[in-house]
Design a binder for these strands. Sequence first.
DNA 1: GACAGGTGTAACAAGCAATGTTACAAAGGA
DNA 2: TCCTTTGTAACATTGCTTGTTACACCTGTC
Lengths: 138, 138
Amino acid sequence: MAVHVLTVLAYKEGDRVTSACLAESVNTNPVIIRRLLLALQRAKLVETRKGADSGSRLSCSPARINLAQVYRAVEESEPFPSPAKKPNAACPVGNCIRDTLNAVFASAELALERDLEKTTLAGLLEKVKNSCQHAKGR
Amino acid sequence: MAVHVLTVLAYKEGDRVTSACLAESVNTNPVIIRRLLLALQRAKLVETRKGADSGSRLSCSPARINLAQVYRAVEESEPFPSPAKKPNAACPVGNCIRDTLNAVFASAELALERDLEKTTLAGLLEKVKNSCQHAKGR
DNA sequence: GACAGGTGTAACAAGCAATGTTACAAAGGA
DNA sequence: TCCTTTGTAACATTGCTTGTTACACCTGTC
């Protein structure tokens, strides 16, 4: 969803867009969008102004934003949630597997982010526009 | 959790282990384990026998099982769940972004699996054993 | 300075998926 | 036949994400 919002912002290049407008596009509630925007603000991906004539816009060119940044901004929790429940201490495996797995998963997540880095917001917008043309053509 | 179970099975190399025993190790319910084992059976990673003297064991050497296989066996759903709610058709972005994003995510997931492939169950078990030694030494 | 439109934020309801629990039929060796 | 364990269904519980309402606060416009 975060990607959706950012793509819309890229589409409106530079113009400020209100959360109500974005919500309509994603078909959801303005509050959801605002919560999302807070995370994106923290990651310095968008800038938002309050008061009259307010709204959000990208804080830099869409060519300089890649999906890995978006992923990190939004996904503050692990993609592999540890069960939070302590494993059985009597089990010889249970005690130590947690740390080992964390290392493996961290590496896997890094690989995932490296792949996401290859896609910029500008590139994504281009592809979306193209596939829209195709859809209309049919 | 699936990895935890498989690691225990690798640890008991070849011996059949009951779901009750595995459940105790993971600190959960036997039924949860059995549900998990069904998925692992479908992926041909474990074999289970019913009746007396029953239980599960790895269907091949732990050196020939990597975490990508486990991931695929367990994670039948997408790691990036599409919102299922249709986006607003009036939005120029909403209509076409879905397909484009799916392609990007598929690529990212592939990268993730490629990284997981590098870790075999045997290698994982080795690391767990080592870190256990360390923990005991302290 | 008052007003209007929008954001930040809290509190709570609703939906959904994962997990836990109980119960029971079926398999299969002793 | 008996006993242990699996496969499976049905339902409760839990936690998380999303949705909803409400309200204080900010800030350009008049």
